[in-house]
Design a protein around this nucleic acid. Structure first.
Lengths: 157, 157
DNA sequence: CCCATACTTGACTGAATCAGTCGGAATTGG
DNA sequence: CCAATTCCGACTGATTCAGTCAAGTATGGG
């Protein structure tokens, strides 16, 4: 799973959508202003989000986007996967026999495990968690250096 | 921390180095043949690995590269960080005040936590672990996933 | 001293992705 | 109809990836 600012933008936008979605559809221009993300770029991202059925659109005046499911059923991993390019293993795309022999490129298992680790973390954070955290941000969330992973769901890749 | 095949190549090459380094320096052309990585590309990667002092070079005939430290003190995270571009947070590079206000872009903590998660996993796997796994490749996977981060370098990602 | 071996360095390339733009559609409430 | 809004595709400049090429420099062996 690749990780760039693209996915970050998408999550930020989805969070904005969740925060402001209680009064009908949310326009992209609204998100654009609040989150300082280019409107045209948002259009691109929401095209993907819509095709992956994470959001639904309402056209015409008064239209906009709203979440397709309850935010507790939308994980950050879902969002990132929807917009980000996959980045697989170059050679040996999942199968063994990466080199000429039967070697399966030695580090195969390592990357596979890392992938499930990252995915597990992101899948364990629901959009509703972010909403919650955002709504009561009276206190600084910054705790000590080693932040304690939030207990949302059992990490099961 | 970005993750592409570049880091994968680097780890594979370092593993090859660790596996064949018991009989003097290992040549890049040897690694190139065994691991099917372009020689010129390896030259690039080892330039970085050398500047970050993960490997040492011996010039001239019979020369090549060898590890700069014991493989138990070289984590996968070290290797990946040495060759991969950093990929920071676009706007708000660590500091608050990402948007015009005091908002610090809402998802800030999320990405910070993810980063330490990924880093923790990779820092917990030493090159010697991969060597071990490769030598008797019947043996099982990594022990408790990223439980005990191995202390190679202070975590300052 | 020569020379082949090997590292070292820097410039260069094509492809892909990122981040963003632009123009124009289609849809629909007022 | 009109304005707001989503939709769609093509386009762009910058950056990175993966790899190439062409020079170096160092050095062990003969």
């Amino acid at each position: 799973m690749r990780l760039t600012t693209k996915g970050r933008f998408a999550v930020t936008a989805m969070l904005d959508l969740a925060l402001h979605g209680d009064k009908g559809p949310v326009t992209l221009s609204g998100i654009s202003e609040r989150q300082k993300i280019s409107l045209s770029y948002l259009e691109q991202l929401f095209g993907k989000l819509r095709r992956r059925e994470l959001v639904e659109s309402v056209r015409g005046p008064g239209g906009g986007y709203h979440l397709a499911r309850d935010p507790s059923l939308l994980s950050v991993a879902d969002i990132v996967r929807a917009v980000e390019e996959p980045l697989d293993s170059t050679q040996c795309g999942g199968r063994e026999n990466c080199l000429g022999n039967n070697e399966r490129c030695m580090t195969h298992d390592l990357w596979a495990e890392l992938n499930t680790t990252v995915y597990g973390f992101l899948a364990g954070v629901a959009l509703s968690d972010l909403v919650q955290k955002q709504r009561n941000k009276t206190v600084s969330l910054v705790r000590g250096a080693a932040s304690k992973p939030r207990d949302t769901q059992p990490v099961s890749a």
